[in-house]
Amino acid sequence: MSASTPVVEVRGVTKSYGELQVLRGIDLAVHEHKAIALIGASGSGKSTLLRCIDLLDEIDDGDVLIDGEIVTDPGVKPPAVRRRLGMVFQAFNLFPHLTVLENVTLAPRRAHRQERKAAEDRARELLARFGLGDREGSYPDRLSGGQQQRVALARALAPNPRALLLDEVTSALDPELVGEVLEAVRELKAEGITMLITTHEMGFAREVADEVCFLHEGLIVERGDPETIFTAPEQPETQRFLRRLLDAHRV
């Protein structure tokens, strides 16, 4: 694998739900150890793009590649592809009937056929790192939103995925709980985990991302390094979006 092969690559992907065109030709490449932030208004197609990359939604045209290999061929088995990626959802989506430890070890044990001991050791190490070492026996409904989302991060990381897809991981949290989840993501970035992040936290995107892409009505209208996008955006749509956010914050 040459150094220039992106871990995740999206080529000309389109997707519509009936009449509604959600993605209108997206090109994107996430290289190893890099983090890309997707920003844009609700309904701009950010979440759909992540779901399409994880093969949870079927794309219409174009291709998704993982480590240079096309995974959107009809012959490719989706579970094998998803095992190479980790996904974290806005609403956590933890399994409510399983304890924290079981949530994290389910995939390694069942999908990756790891030994129970090995899976649990790895899960405990991850949980300890996210400050959840004492909660492994708890059920998700006994945890705060921030704790649940950190468990979801551990669950996604447990099988050592090639890349993490983070879908608005702080949007369902109370404001005072956002920080602890962002801190966890920050640490993962420092470790060099490859990430594709959709977010409404602009300060966070600016700090963590190597590249920021602004999605507008199913297209990436503008992309570049965070400094440029946030301080001197060129496209009028980007300028308008950032101004609206700024106004909202001032209120």
Partner: peptide, 10 residues
């Protein structure tokens, strides 16, 4: 829940 189960690789 199905999405989450599929996403972890089941």
């Amino acid at each position: 829940q199905v999405s989450a189960a599929l996403a972890v690789g089941l």
